[in-house]
Design a protein around this nucleic acid. Structure first.
Lengths: 223, 223
DNA sequence: GGGGGCTCATGCGTATTCTAATCGTTGAAG
DNA sequence: CTTCAACGATTAGAATACGCATGAGCCCCC
């Protein structure tokens, strides 16, 4: 998930970004309304978190502008003001939810996720297939040739990433970043260990091994 | 078979139509309540799939109007809301079944076909079944293998949600949102406690445990 | 004020993850 | 053809995080 934070208080924005990225959410920061509008117009965000009061262009105007242009991205307003009139103004301008400072961090992340989910109604892409391997994201189950395969959470994440990049060779660094959310090298062989486990589950006992190692580069999942 | 989809989210409707037509079902789409009513009045549909909340005319009003006119076409409501009042309102208005978003696609098509089949019998769907577990929504009683199970209100709601998403893994966040209507993380183990109690009632003493935990993800009810 | 149901907190047991040490494989150079 | 070094695979054990159960307290409704 990718969200845009439009907030003039750099420190607050930083804290927010750090917290959200721990929850696996990718964040982009814009430091005022004008920059924020430009970024939002560029698109590609699942949710916008917008401060209500900012220099150059306030949050209300920003969102009104976006909505006039037909942009439907969900917006969560942040504000130091908690009065009813203000809230109403925010919602009228096209905001989807509202959070009053100071807020509990868990609250922010819960709401961001709720907003993101609201958009993806009913039938999202919930099953990924690569060859005879199928992953059901909603049921959280994996099948190969009809046989159910029981995976641990990490293994599941790892396989999801590999399946989303099937046919491409995936480096250890990519896996550390995207699956483990380590932004440094842990100097251990965590990945090797999990690949080994995953292999034992998805390849052992089947004719065609799918999880291949690309020596010196990383791994690749092939149909 | 020919069904009418009344849904304002064009994307969701498109996905639905594509999926159903693969199952050999002909679909017609109406983008809001008023258009939907007109189309339904024209007739010729075996089942109506109606979003509960829409611009112009909401799903409830649409179905009430149809029923007043004597139209008995089976209706499947779609809704983002999972509350009891809401569900009862839907059934009272003349809906025959109810599906909570986000749903697995297979579930939608199964229910549409079930409704089409039940057309002759004319009975209304007030009982949800998953395996040997049955929930009577109106009588507010639950049976497993014929034995009556006494549940607390919260446990009932929780089980209803799990049954409506049987086979899918349901996260704690989803449960907090839909069953508790918390939009933040209460930082306690409320859910765990209720799951534990529910388990004691629906699984203890039966051969096959239905309520499974999906470690790191949530829970899943399996037949 | 009493009672039923809901929520919270604690400690325990265990599944899962990580670390580290050993073993196997590969490819290139002598 | 053999040897060596680098790289990857596998395994077992330790550390950790997660989920579970239970009892106590709270709150709301009667």
């Amino acid at each position: 998930m990718r969200i845009l934070i439009v907030e003039d208080d750099v420190e607050a924005a930083g804290a927010m970004a750090r917290g959200l990225s721990e929850a696996g959410i990718e964040t982009v920061h814009a430091a005022d309304g004008v920059l924020g509008l430009a970024a939002a117009q560029a698109g590609g965000f699942h949710v916008l978190v917008v401060d209500r009061m900012m220099p150059n262009m306030d949050g209300l105007t920003l969102v009104e502008t976006l909505r006039r242009e037909g942009d439907q991205t969900p917006v969560l307003f942040l504000s130091a003001l908690g009065e009813i009139d203000d809230r109403v103004a925010g919602l009228k301008a096209g905001g989807d939810d509202y959070l009053v400072k100071p807020y509990a961090f868990a609250e922010l992340s819960a709401r961001v996720e709720a907003l993101a989910r609201r958009r993806e109604t009913g039938s999202v892409q919930t099953i990924i297939k690569v060859g005879d391997l199928e992953m059901d994201l909603i049921g959280r189950v994996v099948h190969r040739q009809g046989k159910e395969i029981d995976l641990q959470p990490r293994e599941f994440q790892l396989l999801e990433y590999l399946m989303r990049h099937a046919g491409q060779s995936v480096t250890r660094t990519m896996l550390l970043e995207k699956v483990w959310e380590y932004h440094f090298d842990p100097q251990t062989n965590v990945i090797d260990v999990h690949i080994s486990r995953l292999r034992a589950k998805i390849d052992r006992g089947f004719d065609h091994p799918m999880l291949q190692t690309v020596r010196g580069a990383g791994y690749r999942l092939e149909a």
